[in-house]
């Protein structure tokens, strides 16, 4: 803190010195010109970046629609003679896309449900309630985000799969991710912004804490819930390693796992393996990309808020 204050002070000094230099009017003009040039350079760099980032997605879609994989440069453009929906049928026969999507949905939905219910409770308590041990809970929430998952891998497997026999079950998949600590942090930050006098007044009026949370606090932090849901969504929806370890039966595997198994095992047997893989990839990617584009404001502000402050 003191360091940033010192820096701010230094910046203020610099700003204060500036008006003392009454330079000719020409100087700022050349500055503007420089900025414009800089803008063009930046624009080209950004456009190049956007191409590199988006092209694989475009290619994914094109490739999923090709009758025969065309890896020449012309293959990157839509060719009416080479378009088919057969790859989607083929991948669906191998891994049952609907079942996979349903399993991904249950896995993700379960994590979101636990996160929202218990996250709102603890987030509200951390922000607007005073009780013994609050500092400990807060510290715990920050520390938990630093636990490396690879260290938990073996003991969690031993506990969940061997001791509790939760292999091939939704609960076994959900447990390690059940309450997302980053989302808890987001809830706390939003609740903290509400004036505490609001809650004191409600308490004096005799409202119970649960009622205050349900009728006053939650309606005021709806954006926080959207943000936390989106933030939580991408974790389990895209997760591969853990559900891969705990599921052996395809009927319960999330789409990411069944598609990955298709890529590593069965791909050799399919007529157009790349077409089928890319078709599956499109189905797996579409919900996350669509949600992201639809709610992009929340996505972007979330990550800035949660990661920089956390």
């Amino acid at each position: 803190m003191s360091v940033t204050n010192a820096q701010n002070a230094k910046n203020d000094d610099d700003a204060g010195q500036q008006p003392e230099l009454p330079e000719p009017v020409l100087r700022p003009d050349s500055g503007v010109e420089k900025r414009r040039n800089l803008g063009v350079g930046s624009f080209i760099l950004l456009a190049l970046g956007a191409f590199v980032f988006l092209f694989p997605f475009y290619y994914m879609l094109i490739g999923s629609l090709q009758t025969a994989p065309d890896t020449s440069i012309f293959g990157a453009f839509p060719n009416p003679a080479n378009i088919t929906g057969a790859n989607y049928v083929q991948i669906n026969e191998s891994i049952n896309l609907f079942r996979g999507l349903l399993n991904s949905g249950i896995f993700t939905g379960g994590v979101i449900l636990f996160t929202v219910i218990f996250g709102l409770l603890v987030g509200y308590a951390l922000a607007q309630m005073q009780f013994r041990g609050r500092g400990v809970v807060f510290g715990m929430m920050l520390l938990v985000q630093m636990i490396p998952f690879q260290l938990l891998l073996i003991p969690l497997y031993v506990m969940i799969v061997r001791d509790y026999g939760l292999a091939d079950s939704y609960l076994g998949m959900i447990l390690p991710f059940a309450i997302n600590s980053t989302a808890v942090f987001v809830f706390r930050q939003y609740f903290l912004q509400l004036p505490s006098t609001l809650f004191e007044a409600a308490r004096i009026d005799g409202a119970s804490e649960l009622r205050i949370l349900w009728q006053i606090a939650i309606p005021l932090v709806r954006p926080a819930i959207v943000t936390a849901v989106l933030l939580t969504f991408i974790g389990p929806w895209n997760e591969f390693l853990w559900p891969f370890l705990v599921t052996k039966e395809q009927s319960i595997q999330p789409l990411a796992v069944s598609l990955a198994n298709f890529i590593s095992n069965i791909a050799g047997q399919a007529g157009n393996p790349f077409g089928a893989i890319l078709a599956g990839a499109c189905v797996l990617a579409a919900p996350a990309v669509a949600l992201f584009i639809f709610f992009q404001r929340q996505f972007i502000s979330t990550n800035i808020g949660s990661s920089v402050k956390g």
């Binding site: 694989p56 290619y59 994914m60 490739g63 895209n238 890529i263 790349f274 893989i277 990309v289 992009q296």
Partner: peptide, 26 residues
């Protein structure tokens, strides 16, 4: 600006399993 931001962020929100398919192809 929004378009650029979106395009950089899309790979991050997409499942690795899905994008791996395209990279294998490429």
């Amino acid at each position: 600006k929004t378009f650029f931001r979106l395009s950089y962020y899309v790979p991050y929100v997409t499942a690795s399993v899905a994008v791996v398919g395209v990279w294998l192809f490429l």
